[in-house]
């Protein structure tokens, strides 16, 4: 069965002043696909992700997500943001709200859903990320790994079709990385469409369908994990793989 891509990027450019950070990105992501984005720091991975939910405005090109054209229309932007969840390196939980309130906030305010329904779903999500007993706790009291799992639950509460992860484990102590990766792998198993910027090569290798290697604002190479990690073509990718060993 041939499906339509859920994300289409065509010739996407992004500049900050004179600095061109994305230099013509073409990318199609299919429903259920899990894509890892790798590449050295400054290559434009975060920017690519942030363009997809319009945290950054692209300078040129086209982005279509789930049939919605990501243009300047704020209606389209909001529509897309409801369908695209994002998890940040620094978690960005709302510190003045409890864990449960963090998860419930967007469905209530954005989707105007019924509070008791949302609460039920939020508790289920917290259970799924292993934090049902932390519902009434404030984020500050949690470890980094726990906070990131709450952040994942918060994004999932909007029932997104796509999840973006921007180095979700980079701010974590090594011993806390796995609990977050496990939750992400569960999402993979459930068929979530995911774009993951990561330095966790084990995740890129084991959990993704496709790996994209970015360098200097372009997609330098893309392929299956096996192709990227064991049969790299470009010299840049070969050097990169050596550098992270």
């Amino acid at each position: 069965m041939i499906q339509n891509p859920i994300i289409t990027m065509e010739n996407v450019h992004k500049s900050y002043g004179d600095l061109e950070v994305l230099k013509g990105i073409d990318l199609q992501v299919y429903p259920g696909e899990v894509i890892s984005l790798i590449g050295s720091s400054g290559s434009g991975k975060s920017t690519l992700l942030r363009c997809l939910n319009h945290l950054e405005k692209i300078s040129k090109g086209t982005i279509i997500i789930d049939g919605i054209h990501l243009d300047e229309s704020s209606r389209h932007i909001n529509q897309i943001r409801r369908e695209v969840g994002m998890v940040f390196q620094q978690f960005n939980l709302f510190p003045h709200m409890t864990v449960l309130q963090n998860v419930m906030e967007a469905p209530i305010r954005v989707l105007k859903r019924d509070r008791s329904d949302v609460k039920k779903q939020a508790l289920t999500l917290l259970k799924k990320v292993g934090l049902q007993d932390k519902a009434e706790v404030y984020p500050k009291k949690l470890s980094g790994g726990q906070q990131q799992r709450v952040a994942i639950a918060r994004a999932l509460a909007m029932n997104p079709k796509i999840m973006l992860f921007d180095e979700p484990t980079s701010a974590l102590d090594p011993e806390l990385v796995n609990e977050v990766l496990l939750v992400m792998k569960e999402l993979v198993a459930e068929g979530m469409t995911m774009l993951v910027v990561t330095h966790e090569m084990s995740f890129a290798r084991d959990a993704s369908d496709r790996v994209i290697y970015m360098s200097n604002g372009i997609i330098e190479e893309t392929g299956s994990p096996d192709e990227i990690f064991h049969h790299p073509k470009s010299q840049k990718l070969k050097n990169f793989l050596v550098s992270i060993k």
């Binding site: 909001n78 409801r82 960005n92 510190p95 906030e105 967007a106 952040a151 909007m158």
Partner: peptide
């Protein structure tokens, strides 16, 4: 208030008045 608060709220689809009222101003 760290920039990430605004970004997290935007990424959840919240609009500017809601973000101000619920996220930024209380903090």
């Amino acid at each position: 208030i760290p920039k990430g608060q605004m970004e997290a709220a935007l990424s959840l689809g919240m609009d500017y008045p809601t973000i101000m009222r619920r996220i930024i101003l209380p903090q």
